[in-house]
C-alpha cells in the first residue's frame, strides 16, 4: 500500500515538472476532436426528436424538435423490431455476464497471483494465448454446439459462453499481484481462515477498483455484441443491437424511427460513461502500461 502511494506522488511530481503548458493550439486541437466525437451523437438525438419530413431538408436540421416521445412510442409499438424485449434481453445478458465475469475472474486471478500450485505458469500462459484468438473464428461450430443443446434462439446462448473471459482473468491477476500484500493472506491463514474465506473477506475488497472497471467493460462489450447474437438468436427474440439491425434493414427510410432506437440503445452506456468515466479512463490507461 505504502509503495503505491509513494509511486503515485513521485509520478505526480515528475509529471508536473515534465509537462509543457498547453498552448491555445493544443486546446484548439482537442476541442475540434471533441466536437467531431460528439457531433454524430448530437445529430442522432436531433433526428430522433423530429418528424420524417426533415429528411430532405436543406440545410439539414441542427436543433432538436419535440417529437421524441412520439418516435419512441412508434418504436416500441413496432411489431418487427421487438424493441422492448430486446432491451430486456440485453440488460439481462449484460448484467449476468458482467457479474459472473467479475466473480470468476477475481477468483482465478487471485489463485494465479497469490496461491501456489503445480502448473501455474503454464496454465496462465494458456490464458494469455486464448486472448489472441479471434472470436469470430469459432462461431460456426459454436452454432452447431448450440443446435445440439437446443439453445438456438434462446437467451442463454449469448450468456453462457461468455461467463468468464481470458482477458478478465489476466487483468485481475495483474491487479491482485500488486494490490494484495502476501502478509495479509498469511495473517488470515494463521487465523484459520479457509482459502475461500480469505478470498471473500480479504482479497475481494482489495480488488474492488479493478473489479469495477472490469464490470463496466464487460457490460459495455456484451451490450455491443452483434455478430454472435445475429447468428444464434431469432428475429423475434433479439438483443438491442440485433433489433437495431432489423430496423435498419426493414425501415431504412424511416429515419426518425431508427434514430429513436439508436438513442435508446446508447442511453445505458452513456449513463455508465458519465458516472464512471474517470474509472474507465484509469482502467484503459493502466491496462495499457502493463501490456
Amino acid at each position: 500500500m505504502k509503495d503505491v502511494i509513494r509511486r503515485r506522488t513521485r509520478g505526480a511530481v515528475a509529471g508536473s515538472a515534465r509537462l509543457w503548458q498547453a498552448s491555445p493550439l493544443t486546446y484548439a486541437v482537442l476541442i475540434v476532436g471533441i466536437v467531431l466525437s460528439a457531433f454524430p451523437l448530437y445529430w442522432m438525438f436531433v433526428v430522433a426528436t423530429r418528424t420524417n419530413d426533415v429528411v430532405g431538408a436543406v440545410p439539414p436540421p441542427f436543433i432538436a424538435g419535440h417529437h421524441l416521445g412520439e418516435n419512441v412510442r412508434r418504436l416500441f409499438e413496432n411489431e418487427q423490431a421487438h424493441f422492448a424485449k430486446a432491451l430486456v434481453n440485453s440488460a439481462i445478458a449484460s448484467a449476468v455476464v458482467a457479474a459472473s465475469t467479475v466473480f470468476f475472474s477475481s477468483l482465478a486471478g487471485f489463485a494465479f497471483a497469490k496461491l501456489r500450485f503445480r502448473g501455474r505458469n503454464a496454465l496462465l500462459l494458456v490464458i494469455v494465448a486464448t486472448m489472441m484468438v479471434p472470436v469470430q473464428m469459432g462461431i460456426i461450430p459454436l452454432y452447431m454446439v448450440m443446435v445440439h443443446l437446443h439453445w438456438t434462439g434462446r437467451l442463454q446462448a449469448v450468456i453462457v459462453p461468455f461467463l468468464v473471459t481470458g482477458f478478465g482473468v489476466f487483468m485481475m491477476r495483474q491487479y491482485a499481484a500488486q494490490a494484495v500484500p502476501d502478509e495479509l493472506i498469511e495473517a488470515a491463514r494463521v487465523d484459520g481462515a479457509t482459502t475461500f474465506r480469505i478470498f471473500w473477506s480479504v482479497v475481494l475488497p482489495a480488488l474492488r477498483p479493478a473489479a469495477s472497471v472490469l464490470a463496466l467493460f464487460t457490460f459495455m462489450q456484451t451490450w455491443n455484441e452483434f455478430i454472435w447474437p445475429r447468428a444464434v438468436l431469432n428475429p423475434d427474440n433479439p438483443t438491442v443491437q440485433y433489433s437495431l439491425a432489423l430496423l435498419n434493414s426493414a425501415y431504412f427510410n424511416d429515419y426518425t424511427l431508427m434514430f429513436a432506437g439508436t438513442v435508446i440503445a446508447i442511453v445505458p452506456l452513456f449513463v455508465v460513461f458519465v458516472v464512471f468515466g474517470r474509472q474507465i479512463i484509469g482502467g484503459i490507461m493502466e491496462g495499457a502500461v502493463k501490456a
Binding site: L41, M258, I266
Partner: peptide
Amino acid sequence: MGVLLPLVTSVAAVAIVFTQL
C-alpha cells in the same frame, strides 16, 4: 472523456447514424 465518448456508443447505432450521414 471527450475523446473517449465515441467508444461508449453502441456499434450498431454508430453504423446507422453514419450510413445516414
